[in-house]
């Protein structure tokens, strides 16, 4: 039984990071209908920024994560303004190509700037916590708490605040939002800032567990796309639940069958869900 709980916990930890990446992606897709392939690169850049802040500037880890989120939010705003806004209203394929180009530019830019080598955060909080026969490092525990906190803050922000209300308004009906005087460009910047900050948080929080390198963004990007398709494009609860489901399936699959097949389980689950409910778990049926 303890292997079950151990793998369940591992799955939840992994899943919460997936959820964080997927949230940003689904938010941007839901509002601007842009498949933002560059999202995984923001995750990677966010991890690098945190890494340098911790290693070069000896900043506290959580302060570094916060600062990295702010910097990446700024980069997100610039990316929206410079690359995505001009192609808005053009054919969908244009935004698609822009996003793909950005992915390649940012990933190779990172290789050029920092080299392809793997970097390791200095160990932090690596003592073990044990309960109910499960043991995890304190760092993983804190990471999960931080992730849950970020998800809660985002939920509060979108559901309860005025800006959240305008974001939801544009997501539901762009024309109706225009009619009541909502500035869609401001909402676009806001959503890119939020999404990029979440991606930076995910990359920074996972950095000390895995390694930091220029290609670290690809796997979570693919997973996040799988999750938002699984959860329903543009759906926030779908992204959270989808992330956790994917994480748990991976965790249990790795524990009971083989870690080598974990991606197979994850994407297999996606295919099964979509064949039963084509719009995803929380997706709205297309009218």
């Amino acid at each position: 039984m303890s292997i079950f709980f151990q793998q369940l916990i591992n799955g939840i930890i992994l899943g919460s990071v997936y959820a964080l990446v997927a949230l940003g992606l689904t938010l941007i897709y839901g509002i601007l209908h842009v498949p933002n392939f560059a999202h995984g690169m923001i995750y990677m850049l966010g991890a690098y920024v945190s890494y340098f802040l911790v290693v070069e500037y000896h900043l506290n880890f959580f302060a570094a994560v916060g600062l990295s989120m702010i910097i990446m939010a700024g980069l997100g705003v610039v990316i929206e303004r410079v690359f995505f806004r001009p192609v808005q209203g053009a054919s969908r394929i244009n935004a698609f190509i822009v996003a793909l180009s950005l992915l390649i530019i940012l990933e190779n830019g990172a290789v050029l700037l920092w080299g392809a080598e793997f970097r390791k955060f200095p160990p932090l909080l690596d003592q073990q916590v044990s309960f109910w026969g499960i043991s995890i490092t304190l760092q993983r525990l804190l990471m999960t708490v931080a992730t849950a906190l970020l998800i809660l803050v985002l939920h509060f922000f979108v559901q309860k605040t005025l800006v959240g209300r305008t974001i939801r308004a544009v997501g539901q009906d762009r024309e109706a939002a225009l009619l009541i005087g909502v500035n869609p460009n401001r909402v676009g910047s806001m959503v890119f800032a939020l999404g990029s900050a979440l991606a930076a948080a995910a990359g920074s929080l996972i950095g000390p567990i895995f390694l930091v390198h220029p290609h670290m963004g690809m796997a979570p990007l693919l997973k996040a796309f799988a999750i938002i398709i699984l959860g329903g494009m543009g759906s926030i609860p779908g992204a959270i639940l989808g992330g956790l489901i994917l994480g748990v399936i991976e965790g249990l699959g790795a524990g009971y069958i083989s870690a080598a097949y974990k991606d197979l389980f994850a994407f297999g689950a996606m295919v099964v869900v979509l064949s039963v409910k084509p719009s995803g778990l929380f997706g709205r049926e297309e009218k």
């Binding site: 005025l162 939801r168 308004a169 539901q172 009906d173 005087g181």
Partner: peptide
């Protein structure tokens, strides 16, 4: 008709009245 389909009528109107307030976010 273009309205916010997923929201209640009340939320629709609140959003409408709020679309732009004088105070910032």
């Amino acid at each position: 008709t273009r309205v916010f389909e997923e929201e209640t009528l009340w939320q629709n109107l609140i959003t409408g009245c709020h679309g732009w307030l004088n105070s910032g976010w």
